[in-house]
């Protein structure tokens, strides 16, 4: 091999080159389906949910989150698909050319209403605003099952200074398990345990979090749709009556604690940070943080005090 001698000089700026590209994926074919009589084109592989959203049709979801694998467990997003014996979950069913879908049929409305009846009759939905809005929308009547209907009522678990877990508010959407597991954190501190109505989210043998594999990234809290999982700071403020979302600002900024560049959304009330979350749609973080990003802001409190 001949030996080139031309060596770069640090004094000379590196010249500009073509913009690097991600190797192109095969282009996705557009397919057309009909929803409530309206035609809509979506890329192959898109879900019915994406198609309904494209048409501006409001499809309720609880266990679905853009950043997590669909588990389609809550079934509140079901729609009627012509030719299908049962309803299908919009969140995970892929659109196929020629599908005819109905989102407002009697069957759809009944199933959605019953799902909400089922949840609200067994779970405390007091801190689940989205679910409560759906209940209103679909005319849910959870009281029809009577005061003696079985519930998952239990005392909140507070076994550390950062998290509060109140499983009487858990609708078992699996999001926290997915966020703790392969979809984000790969820590696997929690899993669904038990079966049937007694299925619940648990560490092994229900040991307290500080004995578990938990690394307090807070990603489970970040995805919890019902307030079953809550930062203790928020829980304490709610208990003290000093949590007021109408008085809170949300500001996006960057975590100071390492070079990843995680996007933080800082929630502040009366000039004090009260919570840190992370936007799902940011390419760096996709809603996920670590213990430092999630809780490392607390020094700002002690600073204000000194």
């Amino acid at each position: 091999m001949s030996e080139p001698s031309q060596a770069p000089s640090p004094l000379i700026p590196v010249p500009r080159a073509p913009v690097p590209q991600i190797p192109a994926a095969a282009p996705r074919r557009e397919i057309e389906i009909t929803i409530d009589g309206k035609r809509v084109a979506v890329p192959e592989g898109a879900t019915i949910l994406e198609a309904t959203r494209k048409l501006g049709i409001d499809t309720p979801t609880l266990c679905f989150l853009e950043t997590l694998t669909p588990v389609n467990a809550c079934r509140v997003c079901v729609v009627e698909l012509e030719g299908s014996r049962t309803l299908v979950p919009a969140c995970s069913r892929k659109a196929e050319a020629g599908m005819a879908v109905h989102t407002e049929s009697e069957r759809v409305l009944l199933s959605r209403r019953l799902v909400l009846d089922f949840l609200a009759s067994s779970v405390d939905v007091s801190t689940a605003p989205t679910l409560r809005a759906y209940m209103e929308q679909y005319g849910a009547r959870p009281d029809r099952f009577g005061a003696r209907a079985q519930t998952v009522a239990q005392a909140p678990k507070i076994d550390n200074e950062l998290y509060m877990r109140d499983y009487s508010k858990c609708i078992l959407c699996y999001k926290c398990v997915e966020a703790c597991g392969v979809d984000a954190q790969n820590t696997f501190a929690i899993s669904v345990a038990g079966r049937g109505f007694s299925a619940h989210i648990s560490t092994e043998f229900d040991i307290p979090l500080p004995q578990s594999a938990c690394v307090y990234c807070g990603n489970c809290i970040g995805v919890c749709p019902t307030g079953a999982l809550m930062f203790k700071t928020e829980y304490d403020r709610r208990a003290a009556g000093t949590w007021d979302e109408t008085q809170q600002t949300q500001t996006d900024t960057i975590c100071p604690y390492c070079g990843v560049g995680c996007e933080l959304t800082v929630h502040a009330q009366e000039g004090q940070i009260v919570k840190v979350s992370s936007p799902l749609d940011h390419s760096v973080t996709q809603g996920n943080l670590c213990i430092k990003g999630r809780f490392g802001w607390q020094f700002t409190d002690s600073r204000a005090a000194t």
Binding site: A73, F118, L172
Partner: peptide
């Protein structure tokens, strides 16, 4: 216990 209709529906 995975999906709501069956988990709660079977109890109700």
């Amino acid at each position: 216990g995975q999906c709501v209709p069956c988990r709660v529906g079977s109890v109700r």
